[in-house]
């Protein structure tokens, strides 16, 4: 009788751990993708597409790749790329606000 209970308990524990391990990955990476998107939106509002094009483009590509990997269920890497995208989007916003890109030089500096 006790053995039967123990076996039942082990079975339940196995089922729960299988369910959680399958669900937590997507949940975490989805949250990070949302945070990265939010940071990118803020950078966009600061006109970072024009004033910090390198940083904004990097952030955008990172986020796109994170979504793609999420679609392939590669949640771990999707989480990494989403985090990098968020950092880069925040950097883009800061640069756009404090040290904007001036555009490519068209002529040499002359006095």
């Amino acid at each position: 009788m006790r053995l039967k209970r123990l076996i039942t308990l082990l079975f339940l524990l196995t089922v729960v751990s299988l369910i959680t391990s399958a669900c937590v990955g997507p949940v975490w990476s989805t949250a990070d993708i949302m945070r990265a998107q939010s940071a990118l939106d803020e950078a966009n509002q600061a006109n970072a597409t024009e004033l910090a094009p390198y940083e904004y483009t990097r952030a955008e590509e990172m986020l796109r790749k994170a979504r793609e990997l999420w679609g392939y269920s590669q949640f771990g890497t999707a989480l990494d790329y989403a985090g990098q995208a968020k950092d880069m989007a925040e950097r883009a916003r800061r640069k756009a606000q404090s040290d904007p890109w001036k555009g490519p030089p068209t002529t040499a500096v002359s006095f």
């Binding site: 094009p53 390198y54 483009t57 990097r58 590509e61 990172m62």
Partner: peptide, 21 residues
């Protein structure tokens, strides 16, 4: 490239990294 072609630079860097991964 950072000064004169920042978008193209970002795309090249990002996709080279993705490709290796």
């Amino acid at each position: 490239a950072y000064r004169c072609a920042p978008r193209e630079l970002a795309l090249a860097e990002a996709h080279a990294t993705f490709g290796l991964w």
